[in-house]
Computed example of a mutant assay.
Amino acid sequence: MKLGLDISGGDFAPKANVLGAILALNHLPDNVEVVLIGREEEIHPILKENGGDFSRLSVVNAPDIITMKDHPTRAIPQKPNSSISVGFELLAKKEIDSFASTGNTGAMLVGSIYKVNAIPGVIRPCITSVLPIVEGGNSIILDVGSNADCKPDVLYQFASLGSLYAKSVMDIKDPKIGLLNIGEEEGKGNLLTQSAYKLMKGSDDFNFIGNIEGRDLFNGKADVVVCDGFTGNIVLKQAEGIYSIAKEIGIEGTYFDRFNYENYGGTPILGVNSNVIIGHGISNDVAVKNMLCLSYDVVESELTRKIKEAFK
């Protein structure tokens, strides 16, 4: 198995990304190789500084960088030698089994759709985030930012994608699917959530439990929380804010520690033809290590194949 990693993306690139790859070697099986995609002249000195056996690391030179300021749609064709563009070329040619980056999220989404394409039948690929449950374990929420405006059939597909992810990667046998709304009753919400509820009610594709409210996000009422990307991104950023405030005022506790993005590393783009993982732009070496471990789990679970079969 070959896991591709963008070395040039993120606030602390390239050092944090290379060090994260080195850390990951201790947590990944011996048959896994990590392919470092970026500027050779920056990667090799970092490896040399840290010594050790790096026979399971390989380097693919990509001299250009897509920055956070680059326009996502134009960046990939304008910078074909960038680490993100080269990573998607390798992924499209099946020379790597997954591609992960902490760089420009928009460019990663564009590359996923135009370089490896959406799975036939998937209207809108989406991204997820983890919701730590008070009593232990995690649930997920989707979408969290890639689709600000959605239609009811798109939310229905998010439920299917989230259910497949929860089963395959999180090992939840029959995940409970909840629709995030302003009330639990069937008739509550705006036109979008009311219509989505009607589609999802009684579905044979997933275990729909009905509407859930914001107060239920962290109590495990639903294993998968479905919403449009605008709402999901607000939830995600609020959770990050709560964690930051807790740290700032000195609140200690294992539960609050589970809000730390480092623990999860990143999120797969669900609904595209290969395994693409997006990490946080401020990722340090520990977060990059966990992003690679997630990449391994996604590939090993054959999540993409299962989504393709479900959407035939």
Rank of each mutant, 00 (worst) to 15 (best):
L3Q: 09
L3A: 12
G4E: 12
I7P: 14
G10F: 13
D11I: 05
A13H: 09
K15P: 09
G20P: 08
N26K: 15
N31H: 14
L36C: 12
I37Y: 11
I37N: 12
G38N: 08
E40K: 15
I43L: 09
H44G: 00
P45D: 05
K48Q: 13
G51D: 05
F54E: 04
F54R: 10
S55E: 10
S55P: 07
L57H: 10
L57D: 08
A62Y: 04
A62T: 07
D64Q: 15
I65K: 13
I65V: 15
T67C: 03
T67H: 06
M68S: 13
H71F: 05
P72F: 04
P72Y: 05
T73K: 13
I76N: 03
P77I: 08
P77E: 07
Q78S: 14
P80T: 05
N81Y: 14
G87S: 10
S98N: 11
F99V: 13
A100L: 14
S101R: 10
T102E: 06
T105I: 11
L109G: 11
V110K: 09
S112D: 10
S112M: 05
S112W: 03
I119C: 05
I119F: 01
P120S: 13
I123P: 03
R124H: 12
I127A: 09
T128M: 15
L131D: 09
V134Y: 14
E135Q: 13
E135H: 13
G136A: 00
G137C: 03
N138L: 06
N138C: 10
S139R: 01
S139M: 01
I141A: 06
P152K: 03
V154W: 00
L155V: 11
Y156D: 10
Y156F: 15
A159Q: 06
A159F: 01
L161A: 07
Y165T: 00
S168F: 01
D171W: 00
K176T: 10
G178V: 01
E185H: 02
E185Q: 11
L192Q: 04
Y197E: 05
K198Y: 02
M200N: 08
S203Y: 12
F208G: 12
I209V: 14
G210Y: 09
G214E: 07
R215E: 08
F218N: 10
N219I: 15
G220K: 04
K221F: 06
V224E: 11
V225D: 08
V226R: 04
N233C: 01
L236D: 06
L236Y: 03
E240D: 12
I242G: 05
S244I: 02
I245W: 02
K247Q: 15
I249S: 02
I251Q: 06
I251H: 07
E252N: 13
Y255L: 02
F256S: 04
D257P: 00
D257E: 15
R258F: 00
N260Y: 00
N260G: 02
N263L: 09
G265A: 00
G265F: 01
N273K: 14
N273V: 02
N275H: 15
G281Y: 06
I282T: 13
A287W: 06
A287G: 12
N290M: 03
M291D: 09
L292C: 06
L294T: 10
Y296C: 06
Y296Q: 08
V299N: 13
T304C: 14
K306Q: 15
F311R: 03
